[in-house]
Design a protein around this nucleic acid. Structure first.
Length: 300
DNA sequence: GCCCAGGAAATAT
DNA sequence: ATATTTCATGGG
């Protein structure tokens, strides 16, 4: 790792030969896991056509973070040295081939991992995952992204770097201070009161997020449903993409369709029981298998 | 106009 | 307890 500093911008690169399975930023950041990244030119949902890729950028840990793929490395820039956090957020320590080869032998899964090489899971934070996926109900991936980006721009804290302004994901206090009308103006529709009330519960410490390390996954999922707008599916997404727990298999439309068409033996009469069956079927990293299946089915 | 979208809450049976 | 309806809203 080498770090250079030019006009307040710190940068460095992580060679691909340090990353088992490499990384595809487009598939990682535009696959409906996280909504707080944007592409420098605004075209997040278009695959890059050449190297280096455009910059992908966000604010995390109070710092501007920009990443792009170059020929032989993942290059990053930041308002300070944020390489450790980049490694954490993009799960760069995950051994992708080892994880993916332990999935099921079904054709549909093999097809999915062939088609989307380099897609990693992400870790936002339990809080960001919770708010993002409260916004996700009955909504396209592209529109969820627009909603979250609007929330960041209108409510989040601005940070300037190199003449440009970036915005952090709003804090619970910032969201709790918004009126329902203001949140509706950000395009949230009927989700506005859910976001507001959940943020209020967190901001006033009335219902703090569960302390995660010593609680079982199924218990955590249950505990998260106390927040308005959070059912089992949203809770699963927050735990998987927010907290970084690899057990959850969010049962959305696409996965329910996959169960019906490809894994009918896992179909049960409740979310909790179907979840157990499909998790057991998908192998030791159910969340990874789920995300490849979701992205593959949704985009094909 | 009609239908759909990474569902959850309210209401009816 | 379980099944159906309602909830905004932009885009195809």
């Amino acid at each position: 790792m080498k770090i250079q500093e030019v006009s307040n911008v710190v940068s460095g690169s992580i060679p691909f030969d340090e990353l088992s399975g490499g990384i595809d930023l487009y598939r990682t950041l535009a696959s409906g896991q996280t909504y707080r990244w944007r592409r420098e030119d605004g075209h997040l949902f278009e695959p890059p056509t050449s190297l280096p890729t455009p910059w992908y950028e966000t604010v995390a840990e109070g710092a501007v973070i920009r990443v792009r793929q170059e020929e032989t490395s993942l290059h990053w820039q930041g308002s300070r040295d944020i390489e450790e956090h980049v490694r954490h957020m993009l799960r760069l320590e995950d051994n992708l081939p080892n994880i993916l080869e332990q999935g099921p032998t079904d054709d549909i899964y093999q097809e999915a991992i062939e088609a989307h090489r380099g897609m990693r899971l992400v870790v936002d934070s339990l809080y960001i995952g919770l708010i993002s996926f409260i916004c996700s109900t009955q909504m396209h991936v592209e529109r969820i992204h627009k909603m979250v980006q609007t929330l960041m721009r209108e409510v989040g804290t601005p940070i300037k770097l190199d003449g440009r302004t970036y915005y952090a994901f709003p804090t619970p206090e910032q969201l709790a201070a918004c009126s329902e009308a203001e949140l509706r103006a950000c395009g949230l529709g009927y989700r506005a009161p859910y976001v507001r009330e959940t943020a209020q519960a967190l901001a006033c410490d009335e219902a703090p997020l569960p302390s995660t390390p010593h609680t079982e996954y199924e218990q955590l999922r249950e505990q998260l449903t106390i927040y308005p707008g959070v059912g089992p599916k949203v809770a699963d997404c927050a735990l998987l993409f927010g907290m970084g727990c690899l057990e959850p298999v969010p049962l959305d439309r696409w996965i329910q369709r996959a169960i019906r068409d490809h894994f009918p033996s896992c179909d049960r009469d409740s979310y909790a029981e179907t979840s157990r069956a499909i998790r057991s079927y998908l192998g030791p990293y159910p969340g990874y298998a789920q995300t490849y299946l979701f992205h593959h089915l949704r985009t094909s």
